[in-house]
Design a protein around this nucleic acid. Sequence first.
DNA 1: CCTCCTCGGTATATCGATTAACCAATCCGT
DNA 2: ACGGATTGGTTAATCGATATACCGAGGAGG
Lengths: 343, 343
Amino acid sequence: MESGRARPTIKAVAAVAGVSTAAVSQAFNNKGRLSEATRRRILDAAMDLGWSPSAPAAALRSARTRTLALVVRRPTDVLGADPHFSELITGIEGELAPRGYGLLLHLVTDVDEESTLYERLAAEGRVDGAVLTDARTDDPRPALLTRLGLPAVMLGAPDPDAAVPGVGLGHQGAGVGEVVDHLLGLGHRRIAYVAGPAELQHTRLRRRRFEDGLRAAGHRPFAVLHTDFSEGAAIAATEALLAAADPPTAIVYANDSMAVCGIGTAQRSGLRVPADVSVVGYDNLPIGRWLHPRLTTVDQQVQQVGAAAARLLLARCGEDAGDARLDGRPRLVARDSTGPAPH
Amino acid sequence: MESGRARPTIKAVAAVAGVSTAAVSQAFNNKGRLSEATRRRILDAAMDLGWSPSAPAAALRSARTRTLALVVRRPTDVLGADPHFSELITGIEGELAPRGYGLLLHLVTDVDEESTLYERLAAEGRVDGAVLTDARTDDPRPALLTRLGLPAVMLGAPDPDAAVPGVGLGHQGAGVGEVVDHLLGLGHRRIAYVAGPAELQHTRLRRRRFEDGLRAAGHRPFAVLHTDFSEGAAIAATEALLAAADPPTAIVYANDSMAVCGIGTAQRSGLRVPADVSVVGYDNLPIGRWLHPRLTTVDQQVQQVGAAAARLLLARCGEDAGDARLDGRPRLVARDSTGPAPH
DNA sequence: CCTCCTCGGTATATCGATTAACCAATCCGT
DNA sequence: ACGGATTGGTTAATCGATATACCGAGGAGG
């Protein structure tokens, strides 16, 4: 009951190619000095045998696993980061795959669990680096990761003197400026903002952009409400806003999921979107395109951010990863959930 | 510029505990025979030093990586599997984490890429097993994986004589029966089904359930349309159905994303949901709860399926993984997008 | 013609655990 | 009190690659 022949080792390849195992290793790692002819011969032999270097063996000897970690905090019942998730991974994987790197994914529920997880990953030498998501204010993770000697990048505003470089969201909230202009241009003056949890960094950034944008045009926010990204909070915030004596004509939400809740809530209370109230989201989830009305939102190009983060992290792991720069910035996607202000 | 002391090895722990390295290994793997006292002493020493066994070293020697692979096919621009994704991973991770297993995630675009990826993962010895998603008709992967000697489980109908056991969807489509009964009970008689791509296994299963359910009650499907899960196809199918001389009063979609498209399409053409046409989805995506109208759908409990798949795979990897049985079955979640048939 | 360098490789120690084989005490039944 | 288990460990080989040090053969330079 042999389940196929045992996997070939580097020795078999060396034998077939008529060289030493060291030569085989060098051929695969582009190190040492080999003539082009023998390099070819070795590669062909390996191909014939279907051999690839054993990842554990290589990792043990070279102390490099060619694996990166992505830890996602997934608090129960939250409308937040989840959908990014898939796009983010797409962006990251797009950079890892061609270089033969793997992505080790972990889910945790809170920040303590996340920390002990990093400690274990580092102690076990399972990964070469980590992508940190959801930058918080006073985030403990950069210090932890540097203590552990694990290269990392943070998805969030690059903080010049942070222990860990940030990626992509330096212009975070930039799209919110466009949103404000868009709404002002449509004649809206009473504009409310439904924000996320205060401890998330992007919450602060977007909120400030919102307030600054209005102020620059000589207006003031109708209101700014914080939520925990839960369905209930989104609905409650929307109801509170709409119940005001002189309710807002436009509501901007910190993400698309809450915006969808908001549209549903408005519609259920008999209002038309956008005739009575305009709604704007943030994230550009695919679903926004299929809704009625189609959701106006901000595309923050998570996929590119993920790719840039991966490139930066690879570079920090000593890989030659091209340009770590991020191309693209958040941009308004105007669709049907926004329209001229009533009256 | 020392970035902390080098990581401790098993030798250091052995020295501190005053035993041999073999004893340390045994203490961590619950093998061999050690007195409870020394076991404690070793564990304490390890804790003090912050030591965990090096994953690469352990993997090399024991030929077990304690890592499983999940490969997700992510065709561009598809409304399909994506959202499962996050829930599926949650379910899998919930079983892996407590056992110290990791999940290696890869994204591919087509089935060939997926195959060569498995070959590389096997050749490199990077994983102990794999979770296969999206069972297809005449799926080449079970044969491939067995040839590679890589344990695997398939998310899909358990096929008794398949090379790879299936998980969770033996009752796949079971929820569709409930859907049909629900709609019939509401007085609908002209019921259409918008299916997924024919090459996916669950498409066939659900379609059959749909047709059988109607037939059992003495009715016939209004129509069954196949799509490729794209937005365009979902919209086109919906428009075609609604343009019929005597259009259906209810449309059942193979997933929630298409159902949302369908609702949007119907609403844009001036129809009310559910007053003029009822809509049913499949998946129970969170978003369905926030929409207006709230989406009637089928909860197939992807998370439990993921967990069961993980348990089964762990068992096939020689782990003691408890019961691989799946608790829970797909169930109808009746909400507001379905209502009494018009007239 | 001798020396020195470069080219193209090879021999071997090593990464850090696991595991099979082995062994010294202690225990137990008769 | 003695032979055979049992307990509680140890010794040493090994997993499969990588990397450092080394080495022989030509070629160049003087």
